[in-house]
């Protein structure tokens, strides 16, 4: 076991899969330049050569079809997009070519593609460099969608994603990149479609997605001071969704808050709320609540941007409301920001 960052965990998973299987290759805009996609492609070109790790023209549409075609012929592409805002230029290929392809051939042709899509907040990135759009991709049949929130999970899930014979869209939140955790050095898989209870508690279930797990843990620590025990469920995979783990947690705590890392309207949080409302109807003491991005394009000015994203403070307030208790004093608590980075471990 060694302390390893989220970005290093991604690099390790990629490296060992490329070493193990010569059909794995990785490409994306700028991934071989010095930034190395936040360090996640460091050393790959040197080790595996420029035929297996390469930069591409700024042609997301064609490149999405390109990786699809290569996968049909037995290669295992990893296509990196440093922002989901750019990834959606490939939407035609995703929605019209890749989504129906396996269905056309009735499940008979392996189609191993990993789209690594980096999401999240920088500082003042504005409406075109800060979207998540997780929900778009869970909405379309034919994709597995993963959003890991810790170094341990990102390494195991990326390994599984690369080995999977289906298209996987793999969301990495930038603010998680610096988080560290003791993890195994050798490669390992984590099953796609399995959620995880990342904190046990009896009073309320928070289902948190991607970065929001960090915010939820911070909120849980604050709430603990007044003896409120939060249970946090990280679904980790958004499609296929581990409904069981969510349902059994809510049946125990009888309350549920979903914190999405995306807009809420028609989003993953709405899907989870619908499932919980139906499956836990008799246990629920309160309606399921949701937090997520405000329903506007992301504004640039710092105070507006802060208001756009949910954080631990919003989670504390939402929990207080659900539990019908007085709001506590949060003065003096410094919440995460672009300057106050989360370094982990969770």
């Amino acid at each position: 076991m060694k302390m390893i960052s989220y970005q290093e965990a991604i690099r390790q998973a990629t490296y060992s899969e490329m070493e193990k299987d010569k059909n794995v290759f990785i490409c994306g805009i700028g991934i071989t330049s010095h930034a190395k996609a936040f360090g996640t492609t460091e050393g790959l070109e040197e080790k595996f050569g420029s035929s297996r790790c390469f930069d591409t023209p700024i042609s997301e549409d064609a490149m999405t079809g390109f990786v699809f075609g290569s996968a049909v012929k037995g290669l295992k592409p990893i296509h990196v997009h440093i922002r989901s805002d750019f990834f959606i230029l490939g939407m035609n290929q995703l929605a019209n070519i890749i989504s129906p392809f396996q269905y056309y051939v009735h499940g008979t042709i392996p189609l191993p593609i990993v789209f690594r899509v980096i999401i999240g907040r920088g500082f003042g990135q504005g409406a075109q460099h800060s979207k998540s759009l997780l929900s778009f991709f869970t909405h379309m049949p034919g994709f597995k969608v993963i959003a890991p929130s810790s170094p341990r999970d990102v390494k195991g899930l990326l390994t599984s994603a690369i080995r999977d014979n289906n298209p996987v869209i793999f969301f990495e939140h930038r603010w998680l990149y610096w988080s560290e955790q003791k993890i195994r050095e050798e490669s390992y898989e984590i099953q796609i479609g399995k959620g995880k209870i990342i904190k046990k508690g009896a009073d309320i279930t928070i289902v948190a997605i991607s970065w929001m797990n960090v915010e939820a843990i911070f909120a849980a620590k604050i709430l603990k001071k007044r003896n409120i025990n939060v249970e946090i469920v990280d679904p980790r995979t958004l499609y296929p969704l581990d409904k069981k783990i969510i349902i059994s947690s809510v049946k125990k705590t009888k309350r549920c808050l979903v914190v999405d890392c995306d807009w809420t309207f028609s989003g993953v949080s709405a899907e989870i709320a619908a499932i919980v409302s139906r499956e836990c109807f008799d246990s629920l003491e309160k309606p399921v609540q949701r937090l997520g991005f405000k329903h506007v394009p992301c504004p640039t000015a710092r105070h507006l941007e802060n208001a756009f994203y949910p954080n631990a403070e919003n989670i504390v307030r939402a929990v207080e409301e659900i539990l019908q208790i007085e709001p506590m004093n949060l003065e003096g608590i410094e919440f995460f920001s672009n300057e106050k980075r989360f370094k982990g471990p969770l």
């Binding site: 079809g65 990786v67 075609g69 290569s70 049909v72 070519i97 056309y104």
Partner: peptide
């Protein structure tokens, strides 16, 4: 019928073009 070499036909104008570049890349790669 991909196993017989006809990978797909698409009803979205031009959308069948990019895949051919990937098929070609795989052949070159292998």
């Amino acid at each position: 019928d991909p196993k017989k070499g006809h990978i797909l036909s698409s009803g979205i104008v031009a959308s069948q073009i990019p895949a051919a570049t990937g098929l070609a890349f795989a052949n070159k790669y292998k």
